[in-house]
Structures are given as structure tokens and as C-alpha cells.
Design a protein around this nucleic acid. Sequence first.
DNA 1: GTCTATATATCGATAGAC
DNA 2: GTCTATCGATATATAGAC
Lengths: 194, 194
Amino acid sequence: MPRIEKMQSEQERKDQIKKAALKIFAEKGLVGTKMSMIAEEAGISQGLSYRYFESKDEIFALLVEEAIEESRKAIRDIAKFSGSPLEQLKAFTLQMLDENHRLYFLLVQQALTLEVVPSKAREAIERYSPQETIEQIIPIFVRGQQEGVFSEGDAYKQLILYFSVVNGLILQDAKVIGMDWTQEVDLLLKILMK
Amino acid sequence: MPRIEKMQSEQERKDQIKKAALKIFAEKGLVGTKMSMIAEEAGISQGLSYRYFESKDEIFALLVEEAIEESRKAIRDIAKFSGSPLEQLKAFTLQMLDENHRLYFLLVQQALTLEVVPSKAREAIERYSPQETIEQIIPIFVRGQQEGVFSEGDAYKQLILYFSVVNGLILQDAKVIGMDWTQEVDLLLKILMK
DNA sequence: GTCTATATATCGATAGAC
DNA sequence: GTCTATCGATATATAGAC
């Protein structure tokens, strides 16, 4: 008879470690994160993580892949969301700024920018280009342009700028003085509007 | 007779190491930067840096202080710059995005956000609050409001958002697809405008 | 399964040869 | 003045006790 309870526990343990690791990685980056920090955050001993994961790099790569998948999912969701182009972009922006998504975005940012990443994570990151995100949003933006809501001109260029701005805000949010950016999304969207 | 040539060489060596260190620190952060990376970037051996600087932390703290001084100088310059409030803010923004200033801004960002910084750098950073930057720009912004160029409402809040956005762009710039943000400053300024 | 103790690798910093 | 070799500290990863 299979001991389902035990299997659940193992998965829960893994999730517990991953959750702790995500928080620290997103804040401190790969090299800035020590396994002892992850262990402390998870409330376990330093050595125990290695019963559930092979290495620090493996955990990092795993989280990066999850983060990218989450990002893709967020883009798919925006298409389903019924509303004007402006409302769709606003909803997507709010989702990016959402507490649950922030850590993932920060992690990808770390992987994109800050360090020599493990080869597994490197591969995932290379497949995941900013262009990929933008290109899926272009149709929505163009529709907004046709309706006279968004500025004319190069859609790709404007969206790259916009999402750089949002990404930048997420990066800042963690540290800079407590401010609820979600209230300010309308200001950000002015970048794109006529 | 003093050997001026030798003294120049020593200072030049120091500057060479500092320049290399700034580039790596700005990209990788304090813990992500290895002394071997700095040495390689400067084209010297790993041990030689220690003839010119006491420690990695000392170089980092030194650069942070220089960066903050540069930032303060940029703010002083904007006041001297004659022009409309909009032109002044545009000039300041362009200066922030300028290649020569970017690395310094990135470094301060690293010190503000990513890690446990050496106590010397910590002190400099604590004296240098984002508020300090904002508060000096508020008068310019308010003048623009009175002239009907900028949006009404809380000047502090709007400027915090604006500079978070610019900081975010600088952070992205290093890695995201080659794009000359300076051409897009007018789009950014729309955040502040009516 | 979890912890403590330890082997191994890496990096900051120093010493010594040239 | 610069490099190479090495020490000491710290961190990753493993081994062994419970």
C-alpha cells in the first residue's frame, strides 16, 4: 500500500524549500544567497536541502523555469481578459506588480542581469526573450492605436519602453520607500497614450 | 627631484582599477564581484589590487561615495541650467541616462538594494536618501505645475514615481536589447505631464 | 528524515620571488 | 612594481549519528 501521506510530505518539503529560496534569490541574487540563508528561511538545517535538491544551482534553475512559465501564463491570461485594449494592458500591468508575481519577475531579472547563471537556467533564459513578451502584446496595442487611445508610431519600441519601466518599478518596489505602485498604474500608462 | 611621472602612474593605476571595479560592481553587485574579475578587467594580476587598495570593501565604499557625489552634482547642475521646468527635467533625465553616469547610478542601486554593504558604504548611503534628490527637484516641478505644464497633485509622489521609472530604465539598459533610451525621454516625461 | 560534523572548493588577502 | 604561490576564512556539498 503506497504511503500517500509521506509522498505529500516530501513534495511539501520541496515546495517549502523552493518558496524560501525564491524569496532570498530574488532579493540577493545567486551568489548573494547562501544555502544557510535558504535553510534558515525554511526553518530547517543547512544540510537538509541537499536531500531534496542536488545543488544550489539546481534550485535556482528550477525557479527560473517556473518564473518564465508564470510570465507566459500571465500573457495568455491577458488575451482572455475581456475589455478595451487600455483595460487589458492595465490588468496585465497590475498582475505584474502583484505580490505573487513580483518575486518571480525579480528572479528572472537577476538571471538576466546580475551574474553567471547555471547552464540550465541560462538555456531557459535564452529561450525567453523580451521580444517574446512584447510580440504577443503588440496586437492589443495596435488595436488601441486604431481606436485612437494609444500613441501612433512604432508599437514595439513603445512597448519595450513601457515594460522596461514596469520591470524597473518592480525592482525598486522591494526596497524604496513603501509606496503602493498599483495606485499609480494610470500614470504609467500615460507613456503609451495620446 | 620628485618623480612626477611615477606619481602620475600610481594615480593612473588606481583610476584604472577603480574604473574596472565600477563596471563589474555595477553589473554584478558586491558579492557577485570577485577580485579576479576586477583584475582581469583591469588587465593586471589578482594580487596587485591590494598594493593600491586595502580591500574589496574599500574599493566598493570609495566608488559609492564618488557615485553619490556625482549624483549631487547632477542635481546642482540642473538648477544652473536655464530653461523651462520641462527642459530642466529633461536635461537632468538625459544626464542620468548618459553613459558616464549610468554605472554610478547602477552602483548606488546595488548598494541600496542588493546586499550587505561595508559599513563605510552603508553610512554614505544612509545619508543619501532618495528624498534628498526629490526634494531638490520639487521646486522646479511645482513651477511647472503653476505654468500648467505638469499634472496637479502631490509633487513628491509623482517625482518618486518618475525617478523610479528612470532608475528602472537604467537598470534594464545594460542588458535589454540595444536601444537608445535618450530618444525616448519625451515619452517618459508624459508621466508627469497633463 | 533530520541534524551535526566534516571534507572540499572558492575567494579574499598576504608573502615572497623577481 | 608586478607576478606567483599560499594562508585563512567561508560556503557548498557529503557523511555519519540518531
